[in-house]
């Protein structure tokens, strides 16, 4: 046995610093476009940022907490409608209404979570979907003029805010995406995040060590609801019109989110970002080609999700890691450096 002489514990590595710098450059590039006049590019950035948030949040649930949700559309729709109520109903400035509407949804998610948490595993998944359906039907049957029942309604933008809406929305979208990703990163690095992952890996074991598995999962669920609706509200400042069947649609929200995360890599912070960007680029490319009708694209999406889930469980990021084991953008693990030795806390 050699005695441990000098050692230090750190999380950052050289590669993680390089990758973070690259990411930072991307953010600045997006900010540059946001300040310009190109609405088409701004629209794309908004969409990509929104999907990065949605994917990261689904991944926080499924990849890090073991809560498989296929009902994220509930929070997209609720985010949209909270924004409608606050802006059209109460008359709050649309930009200022974004955060309050996400807070409202986070509060609503508590009773919804109490119901969903009665179920486990695959049945939890279907349960979240039923809940999303219930919320959709309630909204659809609501006859008040603010909600607009089945036909939906549009966000009213006051004259003073009309100019520069795309610019402001792009800034908001970038901010929301950056805050979400950084939040997830810090969240997972915290004591709480460690508890969360221990529950995912071995619930009984974690509980025997005093982790309240119900509570940590519930908090993750609320956090995910908050950020999902924050992204949704941002999206609808761009889109303006809201219909219940579209806002609560599993096919236009949760399906692409799942595909993004699974191709990027479930259970990593980097995976959903890669997946969201890749998915968006592919969809953008495909939409310009006749061959890929909507169904064809969706068939391919489904098959790709299936193939990744069966054969490429780590996703693209997992493949990259296998090739470059030191690669990391968001180091969550602690590394111990002892002279020339280095091993991480999981003993891999």
């Amino acid at each position: 046995m050699t005695s441990i002489q000098e050692f230090s514990v750190s999380r950052t590595t050289v590669t993680s610093r390089i990758c973070q710098s690259v990411l930072l450059i991307c953010v600045f590039w997006m900010l540059f476009i946001a300040s310009g006049d190109n609405k088409a590019s701004q629209g794309k950035i908004i969409d990509i940022c929104v999907f990065i948030v949605l994917a990261s949040m689904w991944n926080l649930l499924t990849g890090f907490s073991g809560l498989i949700s296929i009902g994220q559309q509930a929070f997209v729709g609720l985010g949209a409608y909270s924004l409608i109520v606050l802006a059209n109903g109460v008359g709050i400035n649309i930009y200022l209404a974004v955060i309050p509407s996400a807070i409202i949804v986070a509060i609503i998610s508590i009773p919804l979570g109490l119901v969903a948490f009665r179920l486990r595993g695959g049945y939890f998944a279907i349960g979240t979907w039923v809940i999303a359906e219930v919320v959709r039907l309630i909204v659809k049957n609501n006859q008040s003029s603010v909600i607009g029942a089945g036909t939906g309604t549009s966000l009213e933008v006051s004259e003073s805010l009309k100019s520069g809406r795309y610019q402001v929305t792009t800034f908001i979208a970038i901010a929301v995406a950056v805050v979400s990703v950084v939040f997830v990163y810090l969240f997972l690095r915290s004591r709480f995040g460690l508890a969360l992952q221990s529950v995912r890996d071995n619930e009984t074991g974690a509980r025997s060590l005093g982790v309240d598995s119900y509570r940590v999962r519930f908090v993750a669920y609320i956090v995910a609801s908050f950020f999902t609706s924050l992204a949704a509200a941002t999206y609808y400042i761009k889109g303006l019109s809201v219909q219940p069947d579209a806002a609560f649609n599993i096919g236009s929200w949760t399906a692409p989110i799942i595909v993004m995360v699974v191709i990027g890599g479930i259970g990593t912070i980097e995976g959903p970002i890669i997946g969201a960007v890749l998915y968006y680029l592919v969809r953008d490319f495909v939409s310009k080609h006749e061959f890929f009708s909507d169904p064809t694209f969706l068939i391919l999406t489904g098959v790709v999700a299936l193939i990744f889930a069966l054969f490429v469980k780590g996703g693209i990021w997992g493949l990259l890691l296998r090739k470059f084991p030191k690669l990391t953008v968001f180091p969550v693990k602690r590394r111990v450096h002892i002279e020339n030795f280095q091993f991480d806390q999981r003993g891999n």
Partner: peptide
């Protein structure tokens, strides 16, 4: 891990639905 189960069968569901649609 059940998450892969859900993703795989969800992917299958999307694929079947859209094959039928096509």
């Amino acid at each position: 891990d059940p998450s892969y189960q859900i993703v795989a069968t969800f992917g299958l569901s999307i694929a079947i639905q859209n094959v039928l649609l096509q």
